[in-house]
Write a protein that binds this DNA or RNA. Structure first.
Length: 189
DNA sequence: GTTAAGATTCCG
DNA sequence: GGAATCTTAACG
C-alpha cells in the first residue's frame, strides 16, 4: 500500500478546473479536538469559477461572505444554506481570483449537508488553512482516479450558459459496495 | 428595517 | 410536494 502524503499549497494554487478532478479519490482527513481521526475519500465535487460564473457566490463581487474566495488556494470557505446546513468548500487558484470547490460527497457520506454534520464542520472553519490548521486537511498518493462530469446541482437560476457547465466531477467507476455502485447496476428506472 | 431566496435534506 | 430554519443581499 502506497504511503499517503499531505497535500500542500502547490496542489491548491492551480485553476479550479484542474484541482476539482484531482480531488476525486483524495482522502479528506478531519481531526477532532478529542484526537479522533476521520479519513474518507472524496467521490464528488463541484467547481465554482470567478465573478463571471453566475452560479458562483463571487458573481456578487467581494462581500464579507465571498471575501475568502479571493484568497489564494488552500483555505476553507463554508457558508450556511437554508438555515440548516453548512457547505464545505476548498478555495483554489491565485490571490484575487475567486474560486472554490464544493465537496458534495465522500465515499460513505453522500450529500454536502451531511458531510459537515457528520464531521462537525461549521462557521468556525471559515478561512482556516487546509495546510496548517491541524483540524482538516487532504492526503493522497500519486494515483489518478476515473471520473465523469455532470452539470452542477441546484444552480438553475444561473442562466443557460452557466447552469449547463459540466463542472461537477463524480468518481467513476464508483467505489465498490457504495450506493453509487448499486445505483449503477440498477434497473435504470 | 424588511423581504425574498438559497451550491439541502428529510418526510410523506 | 413541502417543511425546517436563518443568513445574505437588495432595497429603502
Amino acid at each position: 500500500m502506497k504511503a499517503l502524503h499531505k497535500l500542500d499549497h502547490s496542489f491548491y494554487q492551480r485553476d479550479v478546473l484542474e484541482v476539482a478532478p484531482d480531488l476525486i479519490g483524495k482522502y479528506l482527513v478531519r481531526k477532532h479536538s478529542n484526537g479522533r481521526l476521520f479519513r474518507n475519500r472524496i467521490t464528488e465535487v463541484e467547481a465554482y469559477r470567478g465573478e463571471e460564473d453566475q452560479a458562483c457566490h463571487a458573481s456578487k463581487g467581494r462581500t464579507s461572505r465571498t471575501e475568502i474566495m479571493y484568497h489564494k488556494g488552500g483555505v476553507i470557505y463554508v457558508y450556511l444554506i437554508y438555515g440548516m446546513y453548512w457547505m464545505l468548500n476548498f478555495v483554489t487558484g491565485m490571490e484575487n481570483i475567486p474560486q472554490a470547490i464544493l465537496i458534495r460527497s465522500l465515499e460513505n457520506i453522500p450529500g454536502p449537508g451531511r458531510i459537515t454534520r457528520e464531521l462537525e464542520i461549521d462557521g468556525s472553519f471559515y478561512g482556516i488553512s487546509l495546510i496548517s490548521s491541524g483540524k482538516i486537511w487532504l492526503e493522497g498518493h500519486h494515483e489518478k482516479y476515473g471520473f465523469i462530469t455532470k452539470t452542477r446541482i441546484g444552480v438553475d437560476y444561473a442562466g443557460e450558459v452557466w447552469k449547463n457547465k459540466q463542472w461537477r466531477f463524480v468518481m467513476d467507476p464508483p467505489p465498490f459496495g457504495s450506493p453509487l455502485s448499486r445505483e449503477r447496476g440498477g434497473t435504470g428506472g
